[in-house]
Amino acid sequence: VTLFVALYDYEARTEDDLSFHKGEKFQILNSSEGDWWEARSLTTGETGYIPSNYVAPV
Rank of each mutant, 00 (worst) to 15 (best):
T2F: 12
I28S: 02
Y54M: 10
T43W: 14
R40S: 05
T47D: 04
G23A: 03
T43M: 10
S41P: 01
K22E: 07
W36D: 03
A39Y: 02
N53F: 09
D16M: 14
S41Y: 02
F4Q: 03
D16S: 15
E46D: 09
E24Q: 07
H21E: 09
E11C: 12
L18M: 13
V58M: 12
G45A: 05
T44K: 04
L42T: 07
V1M: 14
V5Y: 13
D9A: 07
D35V: 12
W37T: 03
R13D: 09
Y49G: 04
A12D: 02
S19V: 03
W36E: 04
A12G: 11
Q27G: 03
A56P: 01
T14Q: 10
I28T: 02
T44D: 03
S19F: 04
N53E: 10
L3C: 09
S31F: 15
E38P: 05
L42W: 08
K22D: 02
F4W: 15
Y49L: 13
S41L: 07
Y49C: 08
S31M: 15
R40W: 08
E15Y: 10
V1D: 12
H21Q: 12
V55Y: 01
P51S: 05
S19R: 04
T47N: 05
Q27A: 10
R40L: 12
V58I: 13
R13L: 12
S41T: 04
D17P: 02
E46M: 14
N53T: 12
T47S: 10
Y10E: 00
L3V: 14
Q27V: 15
Y10G: 02
Y54N: 03
Y54G: 05
F4T: 04
A12H: 06
W36F: 12
S52Y: 08
G23L: 03
S41Q: 05
Y8F: 11
N30L: 06
P57V: 08
F4N: 01
E33K: 15
L7S: 03
F26I: 05
E38Y: 15
F4P: 00
W36L: 09
E24P: 00
S41V: 06
S31V: 11
N53P: 06
A56R: 11
A12M: 04
S19N: 06
W37R: 02
E38C: 15
D17I: 12
D17K: 14
W36G: 03
Y8I: 07
E33G: 14
F26S: 00
L3P: 05
S31T: 13
A56D: 05
G48V: 02
S52K: 14
S32K: 11
G34C: 11
P57G: 05
S31D: 14
F20W: 01
L7V: 07
Y8C: 10
R13C: 13
V55W: 01
G45V: 01
Y10D: 00
F20M: 09
R40P: 00
I50T: 01
E46L: 15
L7N: 03
A12I: 02
E46S: 10
T47W: 09
N30Y: 07
E11P: 05
W36Y: 11
T44A: 03
F4H: 06
F20A: 02
W36R: 15
V58K: 04
Y10M: 03
V58D: 10
V55L: 11
G34T: 14
Q27K: 09
Y54A: 10
L42A: 05
K25C: 11
N30G: 09
E38N: 09
Y49T: 08
F20H: 01
L18F: 08
E33P: 11
T44G: 03
D17W: 11
V58P: 04
V5N: 02
V55G: 01
D17M: 13
F20L: 05
V1C: 14
R13S: 11
Y54T: 04
H21F: 14
S32E: 12
D16A: 14
T47G: 04
P57N: 05
F26R: 00
L18H: 02
K25W: 14
F26G: 00
G23V: 01
N30C: 08
R40C: 07
P57W: 06
I50H: 00
T2K: 11
L18A: 02
H21Y: 14
K22R: 11
F26K: 00
G48I: 02
T14E: 09
A56G: 08
P51C: 07
Y8Q: 08
D35N: 11
D16N: 14
L42Y: 07
I28P: 03
Y54H: 08
K22C: 07
A56C: 08
A39I: 03
W36T: 06
D17G: 15
W36S: 06
A6Y: 01
G45Q: 07
P51Y: 07
T14L: 10
N30D: 11
N30Q: 08
V55H: 01
V55T: 04
R13N: 09
F4V: 10
Y54F: 11
V5G: 03
R13F: 09
T14H: 15
R40D: 01
A39L: 01
L29N: 05
W37P: 01
L42F: 07
A39W: 01
E46V: 10
T43V: 10
P57R: 08
T2N: 12
G34R: 13
F4L: 04
H21I: 12
A12T: 04
E15F: 11
T14N: 15
G34L: 12
D35T: 13
K25D: 02
S41M: 06
E11M: 12
V1H: 15
G48R: 02
D35E: 13
D16R: 15
Q27P: 00
D17V: 14
S52F: 08
R40I: 12
Y54P: 01
A39S: 03
E38A: 08
Y54S: 09
S19M: 04
Y10S: 02
E11L: 11
V1A: 13
E11V: 14
E24I: 02
K22Q: 08
G48F: 03
A12C: 05
V1K: 10
T2A: 11
A39G: 05
T43D: 10
L18C: 02
N30V: 07
E15K: 13
E15T: 13
G48A: 02
L42H: 05
A39T: 02
F26H: 00
S41G: 03
P51D: 05
A39E: 00
N53D: 10
S52N: 06
S19G: 07
